[in-house]
Amino acid sequence: MSALILEEGASVVVVDDDPLDARTWTHPLVDAGFHAETITEFDPTLDADAFLAQLSGRYDALVCDHILSGRGAVRFTGAELVSKANRLTRSPLPAVLISSHVQTDQTGSIRRWREGIPAVVDKSELSDSVIDALSYTIDELSGKVSRERRAFTTPIEVLDVVTESEVPAAKVIVVGWRIATSVWMPLQPIVAATGLSAENLPGRWLEADVNCHAKEASELFYRNIVLAPDLPEGWLEE
């Protein structure tokens, strides 16, 4: 893939259901030499793909808040929109997610789309970090993937599942990340990949490609999930 470049004067759209917040996020973009516009109202009939189609060809980059439903009906989250923008097949739209829920339960709905989100900026700490996040994203879309975002195959042990929550999840050990620390992994991709029901997952071993050099659990993503072959008895015992 040829390198993507966000030149001075490029057009960046800020998507946020709060008009004041949206305008606030335009300031570092304008200071960096970009042309910034905002979208704060949404057509409730549009899903993420249709919304992205409306942006196609109009903007060079996207900055989007995660929770967009505070002021009306929206059929998608910012995480879904950003992930799909970055993974557009013909011409990716470099996109950065902003969120005030980075360390809350809403992280679960971000985690579902994390593979397509190179950078998340904490909304509660407004700064020029959004410019750095755009550069980081553009580097990855151009093929310059950071160490923290490179994935390799690792075993995953399913400890438990929680289905009665906004975002069903599995409590797992990612061996290649931190073998002594459990993390929460989106449940739906596991069920879809293995064909197993949620109640049959605890105690099972999986394999998946995971970015095991990630610094925080919230940065982990999972792809190519499969059931692992039976492991030798006692292989984790000292």
Score class of each variant (00 low, 15 high):
146 S>F: 01
125 E>I: 14
92 P>G: 06
207 E>M: 13
213 H>L: 15
93 L>W: 00
66 H>E: 07
237 E>R: 14
194 T>A: 12
22 A>V: 10
226 V>D: 15
141 L>P: 09
230 D>K: 15
109 S>K: 06
4 L>S: 04
225 I>P: 07
122 D>I: 08
123 K>C: 07
224 N>E: 13
126 L>V: 09
37 E>W: 06
159 L>Y: 07
145 V>P: 00
203 G>Q: 04
19 P>L: 11
157 E>C: 13
62 L>N: 05
184 W>N: 12
3 A>V: 12
103 Q>M: 09
113 W>H: 15
113 W>V: 08
51 F>P: 09
232 P>N: 01
167 V>N: 14
136 Y>K: 11
124 S>D: 15
200 N>E: 11
67 I>N: 15
213 H>V: 08
217 A>E: 14
85 A>M: 06
72 G>L: 01
148 E>S: 12
39 I>P: 04
140 E>T: 05
142 S>C: 06
221 F>Y: 15
125 E>L: 14
29 L>W: 00
54 Q>W: 00
147 R>L: 11
21 D>P: 03
16 D>L: 10
149 R>L: 03
233 E>V: 10
37 E>A: 12
104 T>A: 06
69 S>P: 05
118 P>L: 06
103 Q>A: 12
81 L>W: 04
79 A>S: 13
222 Y>M: 07
126 L>G: 06
117 I>K: 04
205 W>C: 10
71 R>D: 09
212 C>P: 06
227 L>S: 10
81 L>E: 01
232 P>A: 05
99 S>E: 02
64 C>F: 07
191 V>L: 09
171 K>E: 13
171 K>A: 10
171 K>Q: 12
88 L>P: 11
220 L>Q: 01
46 L>F: 10
122 D>K: 02
119 A>V: 03
85 A>I: 05
90 R>V: 14
